[in-house]
């Protein structure tokens, strides 16, 4: 496909004799562009950066679909969902990619998503059955620290130690919300006590993951709330094996990132095709070293080497969307009370 007709036009600009031919060619290219179906995929900002999965995914899908895949980014996952709700049925989006387990409840409630059928052999530690949302990657939340730093093995031990930790705000970030659910699921009614015990370990609460991780790398805290896959980045991209994720006895809360198709899509077949493509090797093999999460389906070549050394939690934790929605406000109040003292 001629992707940039103007480029070729410029190259040949000086050849006056060929002007007519070029013009005809341009016309044809424009015509072709107009006929090419466009698949609009809303996603979070970091997905479609030059170091993210976006470019490889776009190229691979366009090779097979005979379509133009366009990513539209809107902040983080929560912002993407907000935007969809603002747009309602008028949305240009065909597919939304990058909601996570914490957002699924609200997404379903919005009534904007269509049922999909995608067949895949998921490599998730839990069974996945959802009528609307298809997982594309996942990870465990974990506290990440240094090999030679403190290594508490549970929330209780962390609270008793004098290890310092940076966490994220559950009101503005996904990992923050994940931690809230993690503690709630592990401790139930005792969650507030745990938070109270943790209060003096918490250096600060940042608005998002980036600030927290940056503080940790700057040595502002011994530990940071992140993912079990974080050490893989340092290992693979930087050859640095000093960072580790700490296994916690309570088990580890999961984050599953999903995509879904909009009812209002004018390209339902293409959207369905994309979601099916999403669980194939062309997509999944890109994920581990671009999004730094576990792929939802094991790539043909297996996981990259750095992933083999990662800590694997014995006990995955995850609340259903309904359950999470029902405890969220209570858990947030507990968190706020405990940390406000």
């Amino acid at each position: 496909m001629l992707k940039h007709p103007t480029d070729s036009a410029r190259r040949d600009k000086e050849d006056a004799l060929r002007h007519l031919a070029i013009a005809t060619g341009l016309l044809a290219a424009t015509q072709a562009a107009a006929d090419t179906p466009v698949l609009s995929v809303y996603t979070y900002d970091s997905f479609n950066t030059e170091w993210g999965p976006g470019p490889a995914v776009e190229q691979a899908f366009e090779e097979t679909c005979g379509c133009d895949l366009q990513f539209v980014t809107a902040g983080d996952g929560a912002s993407v969902l907000s935007r969809l709700r603002l747009e309602g049925a008028r949305s240009e989006a065909d597919v939304v990619l990058g909601l996570d387990t914490a957002l699924i409840g609200a997404a379903r409630e919005s009534g904007l998503f269509a049922p999909v059928t995608v067949k895949a052999d998921y490599a998730l530690p839990i069974p996945w059955q959802d009528p609307e949302f298809v997982p594309f990657d996942w990870g465990y939340f974990a506290f990440v620290g240094l090999k030679d730093g403190p290594m508490p093995t549970s929330f209780v031990e962390l609270a008793e130690s004098d290890a310092s930790v940076v966490i994220q705000d559950p009101r503005s970030s996904t990992p923050g919300l994940g931690l809230l659910m993690w503690v709630k699921q592990a401790y139930g009614d005792a969650a507030e006590d745990i938070w109270e015990e943790l209060a003096d370990n918490i250096v600060t609460v940042t608005p998002g993951w980036s600030e927290a991780y940056d503080l940790f790398l700057d040595g502002e805290a011994d530990l940071v709330l992140s993912y079990t896959t974080s050490p893989a980045y340092h290992l693979i991209a930087e050859g640095d094996d000093s960072k580790i994720a700490l296994p916690f006895e309570e088990g580890h809360y999961m984050q599953v990132e999903v995509a879904g198709m909009l009812k209002s899509s004018d390209q339902p077949e293409l959207a369905q095709q994309f979601l099916q493509f999403m669980v194939t090797d062309a997509f999944q093999s890109v994920i581990p070293t671009t999004n730094w999460m576990y792929p939802a389906v094991e790539p043909d070549a297996g996981l990259p080497e750095g992933y083999m050394t990662l800590m694997e939690p014995a006990k995955p934790l995850l609340m259903s969307a309904e359950e999470a929605a029902s405890v969220r406000d209570v858990a947030l109040d507990e968190w706020r009370r405990a940390l406000s003292q």
């Binding site: 009101r171 503080l215 706020r336």
Partner: peptide, 21 residues
Amino acid sequence: LTLGGGPRATTVELAIYQAFT
């Protein structure tokens, strides 16, 4: 938020962010 140390340091702007997002 970053330097405030916890939920005590909640500003209106954060409340807006939370309410909206």
